[in-house]
Computed example of a mutant assay.
Amino acid sequence: MPVRPELMEILACPKCKQPVKLSDEGDYILCDACRLRYPIRDDIPVMLIDEAESS
């Protein structure tokens, strides 16, 4: 089950507080402002800075 649109509307990057978007593949949450991607594990976004990867 992908991340629900209602959740995407309220999610923000924990580092820069800017809006985020879902990757085309649906396996990451992307922040264009600070160029980080947050993984989605078991349909749950892991919005921890320590878990983010540079994109």
Rank of each mutant, 00 (worst) to 15 (best):
M1A: 14
P2C: 02
P2W: 08
V3M: 00
V3R: 00
V3K: 00
R4A: 13
R4W: 05
P5S: 08
P5W: 05
P5Y: 06
E6I: 13
E6Y: 06
M8S: 05
M8R: 10
M8K: 05
M8N: 03
M8P: 03
E9P: 02
E9Q: 13
E9F: 03
E9S: 14
E9G: 04
I10W: 03
I10T: 11
I10C: 04
L11S: 01
A12S: 13
A12C: 12
A12D: 09
A12V: 15
C13N: 08
C13M: 05
P14G: 09
P14R: 05
P14D: 02
P14H: 06
K15N: 13
C16W: 06
C16I: 06
C16N: 11
C16Y: 13
K17M: 12
K17S: 09
K17I: 09
K17L: 15
Q18S: 15
Q18E: 15
P19K: 12
P19V: 10
P19G: 02
V20K: 02
V20H: 05
L22I: 10
L22R: 07
S23Y: 03
S23A: 12
S23G: 09
D24T: 13
D24I: 11
D24K: 14
D24W: 06
D24Y: 07
D24M: 08
E25P: 04
E25K: 15
E25V: 10
G26H: 04
G26L: 02
G26E: 07
G26Q: 07
G26D: 05
D27V: 12
Y28S: 09
Y28F: 15
Y28I: 03
I29A: 00
I29K: 00
I29P: 00
L30V: 15
L30W: 09
L30P: 00
D32R: 13
D32T: 14
D32I: 11
D32Y: 09
A33H: 15
C34A: 05
C34V: 11
C34H: 12
C34Y: 07
R35W: 07
R35D: 09
R35N: 14
L36C: 11
L36R: 14
L36K: 11
L36A: 12
L36D: 05
L36I: 05
R37S: 03
R37V: 01
Y38P: 01
Y38S: 01
Y38F: 12
P39S: 06
P39E: 04
P39R: 08
P39N: 06
I40W: 00
I40G: 02
I40T: 01
R41P: 03
R41E: 07
D42G: 10
D42H: 13
D43T: 03
D43R: 04
D43Y: 01
I44N: 01
I44V: 15
I44F: 02
P45K: 03
P45V: 02
V46S: 00
M47E: 03
M47W: 05
M47I: 05
M47K: 06
M47H: 07
M47L: 13
M47R: 06
L48R: 03
I49W: 07
I49E: 14
D50K: 14
D50Q: 13
A52E: 04
A52M: 04
A52H: 03
A52I: 09
E53I: 10
S54N: 11
S54H: 12
S54F: 08
S54L: 10
S54E: 13
S54R: 13
S55Q: 14
S55D: 08
S55K: 14
S55A: 10
S55I: 15
